[in-house]
């Protein structure tokens, strides 16, 4: 009985120690992960900012207009619109 109690106490001590060590190492591991994630988040945010700025530059209206002009695209006017039902405008006269 007494030996059993003593063994139980020692076993519990070892288990508690092992458990606490496990918790400690887990915390440290997670802390390292968190540290990495924080750095990664900062890098991603920086990349996002740069990409956003690059996109704004690349998709700026003046650049797109120049590209369209270079390919010979011209904006459509009202006169270029052809109604789907020509009969709707046949009877119209000035």
């Amino acid at each position: 009985m007494k030996n059993g109690l003593m063994l139980l106490a020692v076993g519990l001590s070892v288990a508690a120690f092992a458990g606490m060590m496990r918790v400690k190492t887990d915390v440290q591991t997670m802390d390292r992960e968190r540290y990495k994630l924080v750095l990664e988040r900062a890098d991603l945010r920086e990349s996002k900012r740069v990409l956003e700025a690059e996109w704004a530059l690349v998709a700026s209206p003046d650049r797109l207009e120049a590209l369209a002009a270079g390919r010979g695209y011209i904006p459509g006017t009202a006169l270029a619109i052809v109604p789907l039902d020509p009969s709707a405008t046949v009877a119209v006269s000035p």
Partner: peptide, 11 residues
């Protein structure tokens, strides 16, 4: 646009 006006102007 008002297509009636557009058609009339085109003519």
């Amino acid at each position: 646009p008002d297509m009636e006006e557009v058609a009339a102007f085109k003519k």
